[in-house]
Design a protein around this nucleic acid. Sequence first.
DNA 1: ACAATAGTGTCTATGAGACAATATGGT
DNA 2: ACCATATTGTCTCATAGACACTATTGT
Lengths: 242, 242
Amino acid sequence: MAGEATGKSVGKSGDLDFPRPLTTVDVVIFAIRDDSLQVLLVRRPAGEGEPFPESLALPGGFVDVAKDRDLAACAARKLREKTGVTSPYLEQLGSWGSATRDPRGWSATHAYFALIPEKAGELAADARWFLFSGGRLKEKLAFDHGEILATAIQRLRNKVEYTSLPAYLMPAEFTLPDLQRVYEIVLDRPLEKSAFRTRILSADMIEPVAKMRRGPNRPAQLYRLKKGREPVYFVRTFNPPE
Amino acid sequence: MAGEATGKSVGKSGDLDFPRPLTTVDVVIFAIRDDSLQVLLVRRPAGEGEPFPESLALPGGFVDVAKDRDLAACAARKLREKTGVTSPYLEQLGSWGSATRDPRGWSATHAYFALIPEKAGELAADARWFLFSGGRLKEKLAFDHGEILATAIQRLRNKVEYTSLPAYLMPAEFTLPDLQRVYEIVLDRPLEKSAFRTRILSADMIEPVAKMRRGPNRPAQLYRLKKGREPVYFVRTFNPPE
DNA sequence: ACAATAGTGTCTATGAGACAATATGGT
DNA sequence: ACCATATTGTCTCATAGACACTATTGT
């Protein structure tokens, strides 16, 4: 994987004296707020030499070779710094690298995506939640972050069709109608109550707690995620997405 | 994603004078040969200062900021250099980065995986095919390439359950029993003939050519992939993988 | 005719989709 | 009693799994 002659700029064996791309990590952080899917963005600084000054961007930054053990730790650190959340659902999304995506030079970013419950920790000063109107964000993002965000949403929607991922967007205790609502928000289409309940309950992913949610109508059973934090994969998608 | 203060080693805004990780790209190349799934590996050089001298490794190497437009182009170039194949199925697998995976320092690799037909182009001198015995490779690989390879196999097996990916492992013309055999090789379990045919034929991914494969028994219809090269996603997996 | 593999049909089980029916709280 | 929502049940449909049956070649 390394050490072979790949071009003029790479010298003889063992020689590491050639230009290296910039290496960054970015995190797409999703949460359900106000009955809709929202993403956490930061405002870029306005300093001299800064690319995309004052633009909106995904939270992220350079890998710190002194501080970060590995990429996942770097992503977890950035998530923690921005949201205070320490143990969320964090999955690698992919990487984007090219000569032109950053005006400062060849750069590659490792993108992660995180799902956190609404009322998690304290938000950083420069971070704000943004919602999608019609499945799209209104504002333009710095770098290729718009593309990365679009990929993240696509991946999330896709996986929600056949996995229990939305469970990671829920508070500690929730009802089945709550969970179904989150599925519907992410998929942006209604689901059948009966089929939904059958699927979730037979997946052995949640367990009832000895409490009910009371309201102006029939109370609903409260559930919590089972210990095994692994997401569940269903053998069918929800709808034949025609 | 960049430019914020992330630690002592990162200076003030716009300052890019801090240590950068090494950036590489590695490619996991699969093909069906001799009725089994095989992967292309290279022998690492023995020069002084080379990590893992003479070990087996995935084909790959440093990103060449002068030569490579982007990561995908870099992966395609490495695939072409090793196999002569120019338009295969090439998908990003993920990235691995840490302080310790390469003894030369903090490094991050962008891993891709490729599916190519058996009798594709000319193999590079240092490259050889290796097969899995019992789903595992016998030899140890350099760096964390064993882990990357395991992830690739897992991803391939997983996707074969509900996609048409094995079609990219086929020659230009093939029969349905041929294709079923490739599914079975990758999944390492037999599939039902009838359900298999129904699924594939209703997926509208292949079309018959006006030829039959003849043998010492009933001839089989030959098919080819339809133009639209996108993989097909089925709404169910093959077996409830209990 | 026979062997061998290609291709089709039949029957059952599972789970989704549609939608009706019932249950249980607040007011 | 009535409303609103939770929860369950019924019926139909599509497709996988199992497996039997038919088709078509070479020998």
